[in-house]
Simulated assay, not measured.
Amino acid sequence: MASEREYRIVIEFCVWCDYSPEALSLSQFLLNYFGTEIKELLLIPTKGGKFEVTVNGRLLHSKLDTGEFPDTDRLLRTMNEMETL
Results as ranks from 00 to 15, higher is better:
M79T: 06
M82D: 02
E37C: 07
I38Q: 06
L30M: 11
L31A: 10
A2Y: 08
F29D: 04
L26S: 00
R74H: 07
I38V: 12
F51V: 03
V55Y: 00
P45S: 11
F51M: 00
K50M: 11
E81S: 15
M82C: 01
D73P: 02
T72H: 10
G48A: 15
F13K: 04
N80W: 03
M79H: 06
P21C: 09
I11L: 09
K47M: 12
G48I: 12
N32C: 08
R8E: 15
D73G: 09
L75G: 01
E22W: 09
F13Q: 00
K63I: 03
L85C: 11
V53D: 02
M82I: 05
E12F: 06
K39Q: 15
E12S: 15
I38P: 00
T72W: 10
P21M: 08
N32P: 05
T84L: 08
V10H: 10
Y7K: 06
I9C: 00
Y33C: 04
G57F: 07
Q28C: 08
S25T: 14
T46C: 13
Y19Q: 03
K39W: 08
A2G: 09
L26N: 04
F51L: 00
L76N: 05
E4P: 08
R77C: 00
L75V: 02
I38M: 02
K63V: 03
F29Q: 05
R58F: 09
S62E: 06
G35V: 01
L59H: 01
L31Y: 06
L24E: 14
L30T: 04
L64A: 07
L60G: 01
L30D: 04
E83D: 14
A2N: 11
D65V: 06
G35N: 09
R8H: 15
L30E: 05
E68Y: 09
K47W: 10
F34R: 00
D73V: 07
C14W: 02
T54M: 08
K50N: 12
T78N: 05
